[in-house]
Design a protein around this nucleic acid. Sequence first.
DNA 1: GATCGTTTTGAACGATCGTTTTGAACGATC
DNA 2: GATCGTTCAAAACGATCGTTCAAAACGATC
Lengths: 207, 207
Amino acid sequence: MGISNGNDGQIEQIAIKDVKNDILKAAKSLFATKGFEGTTVRQLCDKAGVSLALVSYHFGGKDNVFYALFEPLDRNFKNMTYDLTVAEKALRDFIRSFVIYRYEEPELIHILQQELMMRSPRLDKLKNVILPSWQQLRSILEAGKLEGTIQFDSVQFAVNFVMGTLIFSLNDSFLNPSESDQDITSEQAAGLVIRFVFNGLNPTVIK
Amino acid sequence: MGISNGNDGQIEQIAIKDVKNDILKAAKSLFATKGFEGTTVRQLCDKAGVSLALVSYHFGGKDNVFYALFEPLDRNFKNMTYDLTVAEKALRDFIRSFVIYRYEEPELIHILQQELMMRSPRLDKLKNVILPSWQQLRSILEAGKLEGTIQFDSVQFAVNFVMGTLIFSLNDSFLNPSESDQDITSEQAAGLVIRFVFNGLNPTVIK
DNA sequence: GATCGTTTTGAACGATCGTTTTGAACGATC
DNA sequence: GATCGTTCAAAACGATCGTTCAAAACGATC
């Protein structure tokens, strides 16, 4: 589109190619609802309103559209650290930031869930995105065990438990999607998950 | 193959068609590892060691192979009830039987997980299999809330939390499949999940 | 051993997949 | 205004998808 409105090309950043963004937006939506394999390039281009050839032209193939979706997410997750001197608080912060991100980018998180479940061949290249946060969670849990504020036998199971709660508990109803639409803020959602993780269904007062 | 070893045809039950069973076995394995869409009929028949046309001939199509996988599971889940007068025990029993089934049929459960995550178009016909157990869980949780032994705000989130823990916490490590192979019995696994569900990571003595 | 229905085979079908090709349209530079 | 590289649209590409078909092979019955 017509960039460079007389100025130096410095504002190029905000006006880059509509087409690439349109494809990415359509891909995010389609991959989330129909999965990667379930989405065809033609559906993608139809939804994006661009010609069929442009996926290959701009991205070099369907796969690269997928990977391009997670590049910003990769950058976001790189520089996250938590204070391990108080593991309990670190875990709360971890959950909170995860839930908040989930509210900001529900489709990306949903795609990640699908790919994890499918053990898709694309996971290899997604490890950069996923591994850091899982390792941070693992560190937090191990610190909490030493601290005595967190209890578990197997770190592996504990990590999976927390991740499972993060991923699953906030989902809409799988089978009665009608009765979903529970409007809660990301802060409320985070509190909910935190209580599940720390106390399960135990009917004790939460501190 | 040669059935009817001189007797009446009464033992037919154990000797039914090799081909159909071979296809089902191959399908269970392939669908679990590569997903339904990721599996081709040709791979299926190769693995089963049968000719390409036999999937359509015996089952009438790839889809019907999929549904046939869950017919026995459907029958199993129909007649399950739990004593709701003691919801806490009912929930423990529910979790235990789920975990045990998970150990008996890990591939079927894994396929179900995938289909749920994908919100696949096949879920409609799988509702017969899935809905009953989810509704039972829901009933148990609601009974427990009345009883005062189980605490939560939204039934929906609570159901998802329990299911997420059941499904996720026992998974092998998604990203380091090497360090999996944690050999625990289904009884131990059930105990683990029960503790997660009831107490989370809370470092309190379990009763 | 001829005849029947059932099961299996190999080849082919039309449809659709992701990708490539061709050439026109565009804006920038000289 | 001619020429350049970039961007886009239409058509076509080979490959592969799930399924079907005609004929061969099989087992049971007469």
